[in-house]
Amino acid sequence: MRLKWLFVVLCVVGVSGCVTVSPWQRGNLAKSEMSWSPDALESTLDGHIYFAKEASSGGGAAAGGGCGCN
């Protein structure tokens, strides 16, 4: 339940206090280096290696599939 509560707080913090940025003002935001994970294969391998070497995994999306490495 604690996580749910955090989510609600995030929503409120996120929505308030921002001026509207029109679609034509979003050129910078649309650049590839501004995406959440600019390189898909690098993100995949990062996730795989850190999952294999550390006790934590996931975050940002639903957990991916496993492997015999952990």
């Binding site: 996580l3 749910k4 955090l6 989510f7 995030l10 929503c11 996120g14 929505v15 921002c18 001026v19 940025v21 003002q25 979003r26 910078n28 935001l29 501004m34 959440w36 995994s57 996931g58 975050g59 940002g60 999306a61 639903a62 957990a63 496993g66």
Partner: peptide
């Protein structure tokens, strides 16, 4: 064998012309 079930929820917000933030929670 083992089973795994995972869910996540996230919210992204454009702050200004040059800034975007994101928060998410997941449960596995």
């Amino acid at each position: 064998t083992k089973w795994q079930l995972s869910v996540f929820e996230g919210v992204g917000q454009i702050i200004d012309m040059n800034t975007v933030v994101q928060g998410s929670v997941s449960f596995t």
